[in-house]
Design a protein around this nucleic acid. Sequence first.
RNA 1: GCCCGGAUGGGGUAGUGGUUAUCCUCUGGGACUGUGGAUCCCAGGAGCCGGGUUCGAAUCCCGGUCCGGGCCCCA
Length: 409
Amino acid sequence: MKIERPRGTRDFLPEEMEKRRELEKIFREVAELFGYREIQTPTFEHLELFTIKSGEEIIKEIYAFKDKGGRDLALRPELTAPVMRMFVNECSHLPKPLRFYYFSNCFRYERPQKGRYREFWQFGAELIGSNSPEAEAEVILLSYRMLERAGVNFELSIGDVNLLRYVLRDIPEKEAAMRLIDKEEFEALKRLLAKYDMVEIYETILQFREIKNVEEAEEVIDYDFSHLKKICEILDELGLRYFVDFTVARGLDYYTGTVFEYYAEGLGAQKQVCGGGSYRLAKLFGGEDVPGTGFAIGFDRVMELFVKSPKYEPPVVVVSLVESKEAFKIAERFRENGVKVVVDVMGRSMKKQMSFANDISAEYAVIIGKKELESGVFSVKDLVTGKQKSVSFEEAVELIKSKGRIDEE
RNA sequence: GCCCGGAUGGGGUAGUGGUUAUCCUCUGGGACUGUGGAUCCCAGGAGCCGGGUUCGAAUCCCGGUCCGGGCCCCA
């Protein structure tokens, strides 16, 4: 009986893994260029951390369990809460702003589908200590550059939950209305608002749908847009492409203002590749009321769109006709000189060893027989040209490292 | 949690209520014991799981699991 992978999990073979590392490297480089430093938090936390942030009803979407001491724990379903917990626990005294980035797996108990898995990876960043327009512009810029470098074709929408709260200030069911706006279920929204005789608010929200920038918004509603305007000024100056979209909403009330989302084509129903915004979470977790701004990129979704594939360098094959310990010694000499080599561990004939070298697309074979062992020379065969020559060890290393071709015997 | 569609060697597939389940690829070995790629030969390896119908099920039916797509959700 074969043991299957748990539902919604994946195995990554070398080729896929190399591609993932390549994308990860790009994200890291960009984050570090912005002065962000990597952190890591535990894979599991107290369940409470997540219920405080998101409410009891999220338990059904979480891998929650009791440990042997009866503690209620949960595999992290996201990273903002753990990062803010860490901040409150041990970083409150550090000079602000703090710039952190992370790349970790998260777990959610949901129905898997394209771009959605039960174990998935998030690459994110948090700027802690400020939610000024500059802080928010920086975080948006960082996420923008990361997705850009990854070659993703995306659309960026920037919204303001404060504006929505302002508009909905007299509605008893604010949260529900917010959700409907986020989901763009305007008919249901209309019914909800009609209940409270607030249809004119509905008209205002409908007008929001048409808005593409702050100037247009100012004509629709009397509201202080200076914060958002400042962000837009910076982003415009840098040539970023985005839409102001006030229907970008969040159901939870620790979001304080600016929120943004990135969408990409080609992912089916799961087309959001990144989401972010400003929040006040530190206080919820028992710390001072320090604001933060951050985002999380759905790493696996970006992977679906990430085409660049690093070229795999096959190893040099040491083809041995002598005792294996001699082959091991020679392989070690090459490795000490930075040359990636493999030796036969299958007890194969020379012919088979050559054939294996060919199968893995090796460019060079180093042949070690009695002759070579006695004379101390190395027979290097260029598997691209098919030509071979006898050289010293140093010459062999030099040739292989420079990827030189052997054109004649 | 809901709806739809799938599942045959490691990968890709054919077929059919009835002998030993097709072909390609792959992997290992050999032809060929100091030289790869070509060719040929041999070997390995499969009907998701459980139940039902039937003389007989991989095939039909039901349930489950997993995968894909959509909904819900998306902190």
